[in-house]
Structures are given as C-alpha cells and as structure tokens.
Simulated assay, not measured.
Amino acid sequence: MIASSGALVLTLAACGGDSPEVVDPGTPTQDVSTDDGSSTETDTTGDAADATTDDAGDDSGTETETDSGEQAAGTPISPDEFITLLKSPGMENMTSFTLDMNMGMDGQSMIMKGAADLSDGTAMDIQMEVPGAGNIHMILIDGDAFMSMPGVTEDGQFIQMPLEEFMGADAEEFTDQVDITSQWDDWEAGAQEVTFVGVEDVDGEQLNHYELLLDTSKVESEDMAGMPGELTYDVWLDDQNFMRQVIFELEGVEAVMKMDNWGEPVDIAAPDAANIMQMPGMPTGR
C-alpha cells in the first residue's frame, strides 16, 4: 500500500506536469498601461493630447494586447503555440529539477519533496509524508529502489530492491511519468482550449498563468484510461518559460506541484552500504 501511495503521487504529478504557451507575456498589461499613462501626463503637446484621446477611445487596447504585441490577460492561444512555448527553454535544460507536491484528499495531505535527474537514466531522491504511514524516504538509482519506512526499517536504514519488484506492473509507468515533459504530446493532441489567464504572484515571483482544457477522448494513451472526459490544468511559467507550478483536480483529489532549479546539478546518491538492511523474504538489489 505504501508503494502504491508513492506511485500515485508521482503519477499524478506527471499527469499535471506536461505542457504550456507561446508568446511570453513579459510585462503585465497593467504595467504597460501605467507607463503610457505617465508619459502622456508629462507631455503637454497636442500629440500627447491626441494619444490620450486614442487610449481612452479604445478600451480594448489594454485588455487584449499590450503596446508591444504581447499576450494580455484572457487571451486564447493555440495548443501548438502552447507546446512550442513549453519547449522553448530547450529540452537539454529540463533533465534535472527539484519538486514540491501536495495532494489534498478527504481533509488530509500527502506531501512529496525531492529532486530528479533524468540526464542519464532515472535518478530520484524523494521524501514523502503519507497519511497513516509517516515519513518515507525513497531513492531511485539505476533501476534500484532504496526505501526507508517507519515500522519497516530502522531509523536511517534502507531496504533495497529492484523497482519492478517494489512497484510491480506500475514500475515502467512510474519511471516514464517522472519525466514531466513526457506527456506534452498528450496535451497537444487533446487540448481543446488554452488561455493566458494573466501574470500572478506565486511565492513572491511573477509567473505567467495559463489554463488548459483537455479532452481525454482525443488522447491515445494508456495514461488516460478511466479518466473523466475533460480535465483542466492550471499551469504557471516563469519569464524563461520553465514550468514552475501545475494545479489540477482529479476525482476529488487536488494536486499542487511546484518545480524549480531546472537544469541545475542535483546530488542523488545511493545510501552507504552500512545503512542498507537485509530483510528475510524480501528481494535484494542487483
């Protein structure tokens, strides 16, 4: 059950993290409007008066597009443009990242924090807080899982086994979905609408908020088996178009996933041999 909980967390995280935009909104529309307003107030020439009149006569100018042609709040964009925007930082810069996820269900929260490095295989170091199970530490390197669990291992000790032994049939799906860019094809195939919601403050940063409505019937993927007909993903990108936050709800479970430190080195290492327990009846690492 503990293994299934861990797989569910990362599976949901991956579902919520595959995607988003086109033209970087950059400076918020309201900021541009403020700048334009101040310039006309200080200019006393006839041209300035004309400019003020033009601005006042066209209210849509500040609601749909900035003076520089950037996207404004409420602007729809095409799914293709959205995927292009997501890929614009360069896939080579998205092989490592840190993550922080919170899944809320029935008044309880499952929390996951850690780092992943997909540059050479799949390596992860994840700390999970699972209701009813306590704090779980999982390290995945070269196909082997190292787990530290209350009631199963001693403090600071790990058990080791191949991931496929630990998670069974979910192992391959688990490793595929750790790469949160792996489902962008699904988003591109099934996206009905993508809307730039606006620039918002998230943890003290100004991030660009997008909303994606997904038609799951148009996605030819086993990941969508049993999913509702439509799913809505809220996605926030930074000024370099790195995905920084994804929020979605599925069957009453709200998942909030935050990502950071894209492309930066992460330190993921197997536990010392002295900290690996040998447990009777349990499969061991290779």
Rank of each mutant, 00 (worst) to 15 (best):
N275D: 15
N93F: 07
A49N: 05
K113R: 15
T66H: 01
D24Q: 00
G16H: 01
T84P: 00
E264S: 11
K218E: 14
D186R: 06
Q71I: 02
A171S: 10
A48D: 09
A191R: 02
Q245H: 02
T52H: 14
G6P: 03
G190W: 03
I83G: 00
T66L: 01
M161E: 02
G74E: 13
P28G: 04
S68R: 01
F97T: 02
S19F: 06
G107R: 05
I139H: 06
P79V: 06
T95C: 07
D50R: 13
A14F: 01
A189T: 07
W184L: 12
I111V: 12
M124C: 15
T98R: 13
E41I: 07
D179I: 07
G107S: 04
D203K: 09
S38M: 05
P25L: 03
E211Q: 14
E41P: 02
F166I: 01
D272S: 12
A274R: 07
D203L: 06
A56L: 07
Q108F: 00
E173N: 15
M105V: 14
G107K: 01
D50L: 09
S19Y: 10
E230M: 10
Q160N: 14
S96Q: 06
T75W: 04
M243R: 08
E173T: 09
V253T: 14
M149V: 11
W262M: 13
E222V: 08
V235N: 03
E21H: 05
Q157F: 15
G263L: 03
N135I: 07
P283M: 04
V9Q: 07
P79T: 08
A145S: 05
G121L: 06
G134D: 01
D239K: 06
D144Y: 11
V266L: 03
V178I: 06
P131S: 03
T44A: 10
Q157L: 14
M91Q: 13
D186M: 09
